[in-house]
Design a protein around this nucleic acid. Structure first.
Length: 277
DNA sequence: ACGAGCGCCTGTCGGC
DNA sequence: TGCCGACAGGCGCTCG
């Protein structure tokens, strides 16, 4: 499921729990079941399982699309990639078809990593910074000013859409929210990053933050077989709306491939040449 | 530095 | 009906 809003939704849900499900925080690990060993990048699966036992969950944070679980010495890190999902399940619940990893707590609850496509990954490390060092800034961090963003765009000369999706440039955007942000900001997905004017860069940064915050508010987008109760799929302006009228001007939404990813935009509201409005 | 192509995986959908 | 290709919220790698 995961772009920044979906990962953030999972983080918040695991922390708060609800009337039936306890918080992940303060849970103590009794044992680990690893059903798909390739889920674990490092250390090797045996050590991963062994070193997790008897550890306590202290905190759960997010950096880009990574989830960081603070244990009493090291950190357990997840990247959900295309289809990964994390949820608390009662120990009595049967193992589901695509469960890859299960962390069993002494409370009688499990943290279950379910991942249909097996792209998701987990790390256990005492040096999380090493894994995150190449990530770009957090888009919602107010320290990222319009001036800085403009300078970042002009330090590169790339198609704007693949650049926004490059996690070393900015951490957290994926295919959906990039298309939505470019539409909201009125920027054509193929514009070269260093041709954006200062007002366009500022407009784009505002648009990125708007769609991400709307996504978080909607508890993410729920598509296909992965459903967590999110609602943002009902607010898509362009994503997966090929041929439907643009909500702003009525022109049919177009779909093209950009950087091997399907890309949806309004040819009128996002003119190839430059700014609008 | 940039962009294209491919691999990693499983599942769904539309066309023939 | 059954098969087959296209495609899916990501990312790391090679190559030119």
């Amino acid at each position: 499921m995961p772009e920044l809003p979906e990962v953030e939704t999972i983080r918040q849900g695991l922390i708060s729990g609800d009337s039936e499900i306890p918080s992940l925080l303060q849970q103590r690990i009794a044992s680990v079941d690893l059903f798909w060993p390739r889920t674990v990048v490092s250390p090797d699966p045996q050590r991963f399982v062994r070193e997790l036992s008897d550890r306590e969950i202290l905190d759960l944070s997010r950096r880009g699309k990574f989830l960081l679980i603070d244990l009493d010495r090291s950190s357990l890190i997840f990247h959900l990639r295309m289809s990964g999902d994390l949820s608390m399940q009662p120990a009595a619940a049967p193992v589901q078809p695509h469960d890859r990893l299960q962390i069993n707590f002494i409370s009688g609850w499990n943290l279950v990593f379910n991942d249909t496509r097996k792209f998701g990954r987990a790390w256990l490390t005492d040096n999380p910074e090493k894994l995150l060092v190449n990530l770009g800034p957090e888009p919602l961090d107010t320290g990222l000013t319009p001036d800085k963003f403009y300078a970042m765009l002009h330090s590169r000369s790339r198609q704007i859409k693949p650049l926004l999706m490059d996690q070393r440039f900015l951490a957290g955007l994926g295919n959906i929210y990039t298309d939505e942000a470019l539409f909201s900001g009125g920027i054509h997905p193929l514009r070269r990053s260093d041709t954006l004017t200062q007002p366009e860069a500022e407009r784009l940064l505002v648009a990125i933050r708007e769609v991400l915050q709307q996504g978080i508010l909607a508890k993410g987008a729920s598509i296909d077989w992965v459903y967590r109760g999110g609602d943002f799929q009902n607010h898509f302006q362009v994503y997966k709306r090929t041929g439907s009228p643009c909500p702003r001007c009525g022109t049919p939404i177009q779909r093209i491939m950009v950087g091997q990813r399907s890309t949806h935009f309004c040819p009128v509201c996002q003119p190839q040449g430059g700014s609008h409005v």
